[in-house]
Structure formats: C-alpha cells, structure tokens
Design a protein around this nucleic acid. Structure first.
Lengths: 230, 230
DNA sequence: ACCTGAACACCGTTCAAGT
DNA sequence: ACCTGAACACCGTTCAAGT
C-alpha cells in the first residue's frame, strides 16, 4: 500500500527540476552550448516548452543549477588527508578536468560570480591556505588569485571548445592560431614569434598546473610558513 | 578641385567599418552588451540593418573589431623606459582600467582567444619577462599565467557589470552576495564566512594587482634573475 | 559599389486552456 | 498542481530590389 501511494505521488515520468537539469546537462555535453534551447529540452523530455517553466525560473536559473551540479560533484571528492599544497593542486586539477569534460561549465563560471559554486571553490582553496600558514590578512587576495586562475582557464577552454565543435582536431585548430601568430611582424612581436611554435603541442593541463604552482610559489615567497620551508 | 573630388569620394555620412565599430562601442558603453543589436545600430547610423553587413561579416566580427580597437589603444600607451617589473604592472593596470570602463571587452576577451588583441597582450607581458631574465623554457607558462589572470578578472568584472546595470550601487550588490555567503553553514564554510565581511569594501583593482604581484613573486622565486636580487 | 528594408528562421518567455 | 502548445516580442542574417 505504501508502495502504491508512493507511485501515485511520484510518477516515473513526472517532471522535476532534477530531471530537467539532468536532461539539460546531457544536451549541453553532447551538443554544446548552442544546442540547449527550451524547444530541444522539451522534445527531449517529451513535454511542452512551457512545462519547464513550472520547475525552473528561466534559462539562467537552469544553467546555474546545471553548473552547480557539476561543481558540487567535484567538490564532494575526498581529496582526503593530503597535505594542503597537494590538496590545492588536486582540487585545481579536479576542477580543470570537470570543465574539460563540460566546457559549458567554464562559460557559466566566468559569467556568473554569484553562483553557489563560487563560494564552494573559495572555501576549497582558502581553507587549505589557512592550513598552509598563510596569514589571515593575505588569505583573501591569495585565494582570489587561485580562483581567478581556475575561472580564467575555464573561460578560455570553453571558448576553444566552441570552435572545436566543427573541427577535426585540437592540434589543427591550435596550429591555425600559431600560423596567424607566426605571420605577425617579427620586429614588433618577437616573443609571440618564439612562442608560436610551442602553441600547437603544448599541454593545456600542464600549463594550467604550472600557473597554480607559480601562484603557490608567490604565496610561499611572500609568506614563508612552516610547511614551505625547504 | 582636389577638395571637391575628395568630398565626392568620401562623403561625410558614408558608412565604413570604422564608423560602424565606433557606433557599436558607443552603444556597448552606454547601454551594455544587451543593447547592441543590428536594429539599434542601424537606427543609430540612420541606415538599414542590412547595410551593416556590407562592411562587417557578422556580429562576432563586429565585436572582435570593437574589442581589438580598445585593446590596441591600451597597448599603444608608451609605458616608456620603466623597468620590466614596473612595466608589467603598468600594462596590467592599463588593461584592467580599460576593461573597467568597457566591461563588454572583458566578455569578449574571455570568449575569443583567437582575437588579434590576444597576441598583443602576450607580447606585452612576454617581452618584459624576457628582460627580467626569465629563462626561455619558462617564459611561455609564466606569460600565459599573467594573461590568464587578466582575462579571468576581465570576465568577472564583465559579469559584475551585467548585474550592476539595474542596481544602485556596487557596494550594495557586493553586500547582497556577502549576505548570501554569510548565510552558508559556518561549519562547512569557515573560510567563506571570514571573507564575506571583506567582500563589500574590498578594492577590485588592488586585489587584481595583488594577484599580479603574487604571480611575479612566484616567477622570481622559481627563476631568480639579476633584477630580482634583493 | 553600396544601401534599403521586408522576410526568414529561430530564440526565450508568457499565458489561456486543459487535466 | 501541473502540463500543453500556440502566440508574442525580439533576435541575427539574407536577399531581391533599388541607386
């Protein structure tokens, strides 16, 4: 009897915010940011486009919920008893990988600083810096720099993914940009010329981590704590 | 006669890509990103919306041209014979201020890494790092970290500006976010709680510069060159 | 060569009408 | 309470027609 009652209350095919968000994530992942329309979503859910508005305020609300979902999953990862420095690197890489799989998350994060995902990321980095012995006055700036680095790379990766969509290959795409850079006046752009050759083969993930390490190095240099002693 | 000929060739009211881009910048600055439509632009230029397509490929092309214009103006600034470290800080602040005045530039930069503005920014930072004595193998990662910081902050500022549009005050807006942060569970978000109080009054520009200094500090710690000796 | 403006395809969002 | 789907307002872009 209890089962019957539950079934009546919660039909298998009933619409809910969770189901809508889940479907939105599927569409975003498979078709990219441009593929998510209320019409496509309604078709995917076999309902009318207006029905979605009963569960979701508007498209921004939907994208926010989808983004928070993905980030919450990353933050729920243990990253266990690792030492703070390693925990920061692990968290950063976890975020990078999630955004790599869901490039649209990068767009959202760099467009909406009021998302619930943002304080989660702040907490993740900030509390580890506290453990590292960074003095309290310096924690806000240092944490913000780490967060900005993650969001900055997220935005660039999302932009790259938007072009990928219709391309064969990432290396081909970067090769085209490298070619444009190589065509600039070498007298005015000597550095860009030198770097253009490295562009197609460089590893985004490694460069992202190098940035994190540079920032951590700067924090350590400014505030030499017990754990950063060599 | 020469004058008459010139007048005939180049009527004062003739359409041109420059005039279109100029008008687009005016609309973006005064009305925000949402205000730039081909209809509004056509009305502003007293022409038909289709006429704009004779000079501009599409909206992305137009936004790219407007963004490149603004950035080129910043990069043209002397930043003269300053020592490399100061030149980097000056360049970073110049970019920050330009994006502060034209928040839509922030959106564009963090959405389109293939813009002509990007290699310009790379060159600006990269060549100074070379002067600073950063070894060649480390220049790409270090420059990219500085560029990402600028683009990351640019994206966040643009996002803030999008909300500002309908708000009285920046402090009020940040105050609302701070309040949301303060309502999170203090046991799970101890760091965010501590930092929430600093959010409304903190200076974005100073925090941006603190990030640049942190990165420069990390570069100096990793590659102690002649100029970073204390 | 350059401009005009109606037309097209496609959005997000609303809402009267249903169950 | 929840769903349907036509309708509305508004886009970017195209294109036949003009000069």
């Amino acid at each position: 009897m209890a089962i019957k009652k539950q079934r009546a209350v919660r039909r298998t095919d009933a619409l809910s915010k969770e189901r809508i968000v889940e479907a939105a994530i599927e569409i975003l992942d498979s078709g990219g940011e441009g593929a998510l329309t209320f019409r496509a979503l309604a078709a995917h859910l076999a309902t009318g486009s207006g029905a979605i508005y009963w569960h979701v305020a508007n498209k921004d609300d939907l994208l926010a919920a989808a983004t928070n979902d993905v980030i919450a999953r990353v933050m729920a990862d243990p990253a266990g008893g690792a030492r703070p420095r390693e925990a920061i690197r692990a968290l950063a890489l976890g975020l990078f990988d999630a955004i790599d799989v869901h490039p649209w998350v990068g767009t959202q994060l760099s467009r909406a600083p009021w998302l619930a995902a943002i304080p989660q990321i702040f907490e993740g980095f900030g509390s580890r810096l506290e453990e590292l012995g960074v003095p309290e006055e310096a924690q806000f700036d240092a944490t913000s720099t780490l967060v900005i680095h993650v969001l900055g790379v997220a935005g660039q990766n999302a932009a790259n993914a938007r072009l990928h969509a219709h391309r064969t290959d990432r290396t081909v795409f970067l090769g085209e940009i490298a070619q444009q850079w190589a065509q600039l006046d070498p007298a005015r752009y000597p550095f860009v010329h030198r770097v253009a050759a490295q562009l197609p083969e460089h590893d985004d993930r490694e460069q992202f981590l190098a940035g994190i390490d540079l920032i951590l190095g700067g924090i350590g240099a400014a505030h030499p704590g017990p754990s950063s002693r060599t």
